[in-house]
Nucleic acid binder design. Structure first.
Lengths: 221, 221
DNA sequence: CGTTTCATTGAGTGCGATCAAGCCGTGTGG
DNA sequence: CCACACGGCTTGATCGCACTCAATGAAACG
């Protein structure tokens, strides 16, 4: 029986948003900003002197190749911290999927807090650890899963986020495609296919219901 | 001008191996073990109570899907730390590519050191940060690069490792394929193609020379 | 109502996978 | 020493999944 390498020493009280320790600290210090749909929150190659947290809305991090090919690194939902990087310059840009409220704080503030509070650094580590776990799942998805498995995996993730039977896709088909390493047409076809197999059912373009979660889980690989 | 979030407070002296701060600590405490080719160093779902460092040889981390599809997460060369995870159980297994010497230490030892030495935790963070950066590069490679670009990217990485004109591929074609999300046949074809374009030239099956590094860089995307 | 943007669907193509044969270096036993 | 087997790699032929190109449908918006 070993203790976890990283464990928060600050415990959160009741909170309106899903939270981790780092989010708690930020909520005491951060300034709020709003961003419009597709507005850039930070750009590739900018300095990493700010750390962010989603209050409302959804954020994506993206990377562009010279010829315009785009890869989405991750999506960040309400309560999640993003933009905490270790290097000097950003490796991704971040944009608002739709209208967003974001909390910002200086990284240096976090650092000086860490000098007196020994609980801060493990928390930052945990935030990065989550990034790493997700990136590694992403690698398996992109390296070895079929188009159908990729789409099913994303739907599972989104559906798991709000435990209800109805789930909301906050991103466009293009965003899904750029996250899954596919094209919009393939994403659309796989969604239709999953629907024709009665695994999911779409209510609107962005709202779906999981009809057979066992099948969806199996199809996600 | 902001200070880096993570900066080592212990500076390495002259060392025979490429090193980071964490490696220095381990070299004072770790026990050495040898592993034969393809021998498992740790397995998926094991506890994460040990941390490793490559002394000699090369290590790969791999992930298997239920039906046997394999994805290699990364390769670790002499001097690099691996197996430092944040969760309780391992998300990858690790095996020796060829015969290997590995240094092992208990994670709990590292943790207790961290309590007295404030330099340890930033160092662990840096080790994880490197993992994250590499995982994110890997995501772009798998999500948006062509077969040729993927192979070129890997060759660049390997060639960059030893600055000489001749570089050594420590892994089999199958390992390359499972890292790049391709098949051995495609890897082989791309290597032949790069050779026919006089971008690289093979001396043996595992030894190549970069003839046109500009072209290789361009082809890596 | 028209315009614009986003999504679906169809037809055809092509990149990388699959299936299969052969090559080559290495090791083993006669 | 050669004969043979074996594993790793290459090359060829063919297949099929996902991409591309194109048309249509469906919302959102002025």
């Amino acid at each position: 029986m070993t203790a976890p390498l990283i464990s928060s020493t600050i415990h959160a009280g009741a909170q309106p948003l899903p939270s981790d320790g780092l989010a708690d600290v930020m909520s005491q210090m951060g300034l709020r900003t709003t961003y419009a749909r597709d507005e850039e929150i930070f750009g590739q190659d900018e300095e990493t002197n700010l750390v962010y947290r989603v209050i409302d809305g959804v954020v994506r991090t993206t990377r562009l190749m010279a010829d315009g090919r785009r890869q989405i690194g991750d999506f960040y939902f309400a309560g999640q911290v993003f933009g905490l990087e270790c290097g000097q310059t950003r490796r991704f840009s971040a944009e608002a999927l739709g209208d967003c409220t974001i909390e910002v704080m200086r990284r240096s503030t976090l650092e000086s807090l860490a000098e007196t509070d020994p609980g801060i650094e493990p928390m930052m580590m945990q935030a990065i650890a989550r990034e790493l776990d997700r990136a590694q799942d992403h690698v398996l998805l992109l390296g070895r899963k079929t188009a159908c498995e990729r789409v099913a995996s994303l739907l599972l993730e989104v559906a798991g986020r709000n435990g209800e039977d109805e789930a909301d896709l906050p991103m466009t088909r293009q965003d899904m495609a750029d996250y899954l390493g596919l094209t919009i047409e393939t994403v659309s076809r796989m969604l239709s296919q999953l629907q024709s197999k009665a695994v999911i059912r779409f209510r609107g373009l962005r709202t779906f219901e999981v009809c057979n979660s066992r099948a969806l889980l199996r199809m996600a690989g």
